[in-house]
Deep mutational scan, measured.
Amino acid sequence: SAVVMEEGSPGEVPVLVEPPGLEDVEAALGMDRRTDAYSRSSSVSSQEEKSLHAEELVGRGIPIERVVSSEGGRPSVDLSFQPSQPLSKSSSSPELQTLQDILGDPGDKADVGRLSPEVKARSQSGTLDGESAAWSASGEDSRGQPEGPLPSSSPRSPSGLRPRGYTISDSAPSRRGKRVERDALKSRATASNAEKVPGINPSFVFLQLYHSPFFGDESNKPILLPNESQSFERSVQLLDQIPSYDTHKIAVLYVGEGQSNSELAILSNEHGSYRYTEFLTGLGRLIELKDCQPDKVYLGGLDVCGEDGQFTYCWHDDIMQAVFHIATLMPTKDVDKHRCDKKRHLGNDFVSIVYNDSGEDFKLGTIKGQFNFVHVIVTPLDYECNLVSLQCRKDMEGLVDTSVAKIVSDRNLPFVARQMALHANMASQVHHSRSNPTDIYPSKWIARLRHIKRLRQRICEEAAYSNPSLPLVHPPSHSKAPAQTPAEPTPGYEVGQRKRLISSVEDFTEFV
């Protein structure tokens, strides 16, 4: 048969007729292969192709491409040299491709048809291009793949890379869960390890502090508590009631339409708007009261037996805890006409967050109470924005700035309102402590230090009264110190430094 060459192609190359033996071998191979691939376009007849790359030819070592076609129900084999250009295909004639002069020997084609199974398996396991790669995943090629499931790999992101949580363990979102698992493993320790309690022994800490320079003076030496005195035992138990972190309780009120001037209507609300609910979820963490331990979680007086509701929101960081007394989460009882059960919590909070959804101005004093010092007013606006402002009593104007209003988005509203309420509550605590000038409020841990110092002074006084020969370590507060001759004046800087060093040991009130 003659071949018409394309323009620009090399000279004529004689194409030899395939021997009958080659056709029989390739026909047997075509019957084993699956003929249901995917359909081509209507211009080209339905056909199945599979590209198999052999590394070497037997005796020649030339890479070839073998295409199996099922045109007219008769499979045909096409061998081509890759750099050459194939002729145009037609549905009426068999596929013809040019070969190099080196394939002119018909014996070479017979060798190609009689490829060993080793070469076929190696060509099938190679990388296939384009559409033949999808075909190689079918059941027909499963014989050339190794048996057994593939090893499982770690989760992959859409980009093909490992997620960040699997790369950096410290930033993994499941870090707290692993800590819980470690605690569970520790709890399952053997009885021999049960006595080993991690941490620092208080006796060891005391020993280090006792021999430090801070205890060089007799006034700073630790003293032993009497065991037989019940009054001192009660004082030590009272110390446990003062937490070592700051605590805040903040009221949250929802004002519906037409309720801006009605205290009873505001306290009777059992739910609010959708934006109000989203605002609550951002204030803190939802907790169930019956599962809380009052000595570990500050509840601000809420009952854990269901008297004040089942849930509330709280927030904490390293040095403070805040609980929100939310009116809509507290039960509304029919027998309580004046809502006294709610007001006994909300009316005693220094700061209230008022979500004013009424469309009218909310005035300070609508919720009557002796300790309502500051109101954080949240007014929802259009386009997911809110107006946040402050209202306070006249005696609080020096501590709280009420002249600045803020426009905040719904997303950042819980954070801004919480921070403003916490700052206002700190100012309210300082303002409330002014009624007792001898006990200015600095912080909870300073209050613990003052309680310890008062307890020490009482013990020293009782020891001096029981044994008059012992001198008083600290003179009583009601006694007057003996007159001392004025010492020589020293520079102001040295006096300030000495006073600062003494105050650092005794108390921190002056620095606050």
Rank of each mutant, 00 (worst) to 15 (best):
E218L: 13
K221R: 11
I223F: 09
N227A: 11
N227Y: 10
E228T: 06
S229A: 10
S229R: 07
S231I: 12
S231W: 14
F232A: 09
F232T: 09
E233R: 13
V236L: 12
Q237M: 12
D240R: 05
Q241S: 12
I242E: 12
Y245P: 06
T247Q: 15
K249F: 15
Y254L: 00
G256H: 02
G258Q: 04
G258R: 05
S260C: 09
S262Q: 06
L264N: 10
I266M: 03
L267R: 04
H271D: 09
S273I: 01
Y276T: 00
Y276Q: 00
E278K: 11
F279W: 01
L280H: 02
L283R: 00
G284D: 03
I287L: 08
D291W: 06
Q293P: 13
P294I: 14
P294M: 13
V297L: 09
L299W: 14
D303W: 02
V304M: 13
G306L: 06
E307G: 14
G309P: 15
T312A: 12
C314I: 15
D318C: 09
I319L: 15
Q321H: 14
H325T: 04
A327I: 03
L329C: 05
L329H: 05
M330N: 07
D334T: 14
D334H: 14
K337V: 14
K337E: 15
R339S: 11
C340N: 15
D341G: 15
D341F: 14
K342D: 05
K343D: 06
R344Q: 12
R344N: 07
R344F: 10
L346C: 05
G347Q: 15
D349V: 08
F350G: 02
V351M: 01
S358K: 01
E360W: 02
D361P: 09
F362P: 01
L364T: 15
G365L: 03
G365Q: 10
G365T: 11
K368D: 14
K368I: 06
G369N: 09
G369E: 06
V374Y: 04
V376T: 01
V378A: 03
T379Q: 15
P380D: 00
Y383W: 06
Y383D: 07
E384F: 05
C385M: 05
Q391T: 09
Q391K: 09
R393G: 11
K394C: 13
D395E: 14
E397G: 08
G398E: 06
G398I: 09
L399E: 07
V400G: 04
D401C: 05
D401N: 07
T402H: 08
D410K: 00
N412W: 05
N412T: 06
L413I: 04
L413Y: 00
L413N: 00
P414W: 00
A417V: 11
R418Q: 04
Q419K: 01
M420I: 07
A421N: 00
L422I: 09
A424N: 03
A427Q: 04
V430D: 02
V430M: 11
V430N: 03
H432C: 07
R434D: 07
S435P: 04
N436F: 06
P437W: 05
D439S: 09
D439E: 10
I440D: 11
I440Y: 07
P442E: 11
P442M: 06
S443N: 13
R448F: 06
L449C: 07
K453I: 15
R454K: 14
Q457I: 05
R458P: 13
R458N: 15
E461D: 13
E462T: 07
Y465S: 09
S466C: 14
P471D: 12
L472T: 14
V473K: 15
V473L: 13
P475M: 14
H478F: 09
K480F: 09
A483W: 08
Q484S: 09
Q484Y: 10
T485W: 12
A487D: 12
P489D: 14
P491C: 11
G492M: 12
V495P: 14
G496I: 09
R498P: 14
K499Y: 09
V505C: 12
V505P: 15
F508R: 15
E510K: 08
E510N: 10
E510S: 11
E510H: 09
